[in-house]
Amino acid sequence: MTVIKMALIGLGKMGLHMVHLIENTKMDTKIEIVAVCDANEEGLASFAASHRGVRTYTDYKQLMNEHQIDLLYIAVPPKFHYPVVMEALERKIHVFCEKPLANSVEEAKKMLDAAEQAGVVHAIHFSMPHEPSVLKLQEMIEQGTVGAIRKIDLILQFPQWPRSWQQNAWITSREQGGFILEVGIHWIHMIQKVFGAIRVVSTQVQYPENGDCELEVQAAMELEDGTRIQLNGISQFAGEERVSMVVYGTKGTIALENWEELKTGLVGQPLTPVEVLESASELPVLKHVIARIQGNPAKIYDFNDGYQAQLILEALRNTEQSR
């Protein structure tokens, strides 16, 4: 396959970012965007004005009816993932989906089963394990840099939610928005890949009375060996955003601060920055998806990864355990 014919469903921030990525990244294989779909006709018109060779649609089924597609990228709000993905899988189209995989554990399981039955490439846009800072962190953990792991803290703090660049109708909804789903999933998946399976022991979530997404979450989790993971999340406060993970070991500490600032130190010593080589980056994830479609070695995270992360997300948001 010398040319990958690709379509995109959803032209929000992530959809437009993917278009930019395709147009500005050197790929071993040519990717041709043949069609895009979005419910916002004004946005479609703006896109069409600068991409005259690309067909635009407001109906994803019509798009699939009228085009032979190798790969479908899905970047619509979470509750719309299921119908779009299932339609693509029924047509045996390779799927690259934004996270979270679905809007419920039940949907995620059905999508996983359908993807495996379809026999196509099914990938989730999980990028953290490909980041050079995470690759370095994993190397340090495997080398025993800080000894045996005693405890992991996950901190999600947002003075404003949604953040200034996330203004849309669904990101504040309790159904499919909130920082647990939108941000927490990246870290949950990364922890699962670096440290292994997670179990939620207990969780407390505070929701506002107006029905919007969570304001706070306090949760206790653990790895298979019993290592504790403490999640502390809060939004709507005075201060600075912090999205970080701190790993406490018997010999020292490793901190991944604000997504990519890696620091470490021995017991009793201050944390100091760790040199991270940008050349070690495995991004963009799209390159791996294309390689897998062509039968070449690749590192992708599939619908099973999405399902496993969804199990933890829904356990964290379980209002029966929340107060």
Rank of each mutant, 00 (worst) to 15 (best):
V247K: 00
H81E: 09
V194W: 01
Q138N: 15
L286F: 04
V243P: 03
L256G: 00
L266T: 11
A220V: 14
G211F: 06
I312E: 06
E261L: 13
S127T: 13
Q160D: 06
Q167A: 02
A298W: 05
E139I: 07
K92H: 13
T319F: 12
W165S: 04
P270W: 10
A197E: 14
S164R: 06
E107V: 06
L266K: 15
K30V: 14
L21H: 12
V76W: 10
V134K: 03
F96E: 05
V246Q: 04
A315M: 09
M140H: 09
L256E: 01
I180K: 02
R52P: 08
Q167R: 02
W165P: 00
Q68W: 09
K251Y: 05
P297T: 07
Q218E: 15
R323V: 12
T58C: 00
G147M: 08
E222A: 15
A291P: 00
T2V: 10
L283A: 06
H51S: 05
Q62F: 01
V84P: 05
V36A: 09
K110R: 15
T250L: 01
G119H: 03
P83A: 11
F158S: 00
T56L: 02
G43Y: 08
K13D: 10
F195Y: 05
V120A: 02
Q206A: 15
K30F: 11
S164P: 06
L231G: 08
M111H: 04
G239K: 05
P78C: 10
A49P: 04
H20E: 13
V34I: 12
N304L: 15
S46P: 07
L181N: 07
Q166I: 00
G265A: 07
E241Y: 05
Q167D: 02
Y57S: 00
L11N: 01
L283S: 05
A148M: 14
Q138L: 11
V85G: 08
Q143G: 10
E261W: 09
N318G: 04
D153H: 12
G144C: 09
G184W: 01
A315P: 06
K5Y: 04
H125F: 10
E107D: 15
K79D: 13
K61N: 07
G178Y: 01
L311F: 08
M64I: 01
T58V: 05
E222K: 15
G239F: 05
W259N: 09
I300S: 05
D153C: 06
